[in-house]
Amino acid sequence: MNQWVIALPFITVALLISLGLYTILFKRNLIKMIMGLAIIQNGVNLFLVSLAYREGYAAPIWTSAPGEDMVLPTSHALTLTSIVIGLATTALMLSFVIMLKKHKGSVDSFKNRRCRE
């Protein structure tokens, strides 16, 4: 029982990734599918941050730090990179959806199946 409580952040990560997969597989609206991708990306970011956690340790910044013990800094740096890349790809996908809506008149992924004509 105890280890289920302690592993709660990882269980949250599993829940977020499963919700994102569900959204991508079962929704027909393209914007909702992009939302699913964003949910998966947030789950991965939460996983990276919670990997770096050490109990009772401070943030890795020496300015007025409360103590000498600090959490692992590399995962935080990678999470920053991941957030900006996710934002860029989401903006690009949304602009593709805007173009699709203009040319085909629909954001339904089933109606946009054929690419010619």
């Binding site: 592993a7 990882f10 599993a14 956690y53």
Partner: peptide, 22 residues
Amino acid sequence: IFAFLVITAVELRGDDGGFGEP
């Protein structure tokens, strides 16, 4: 997939380094 992820997350504790013990 969800069950696999949850079991992996719970079993991560121990010598592999779970949450709070990298």
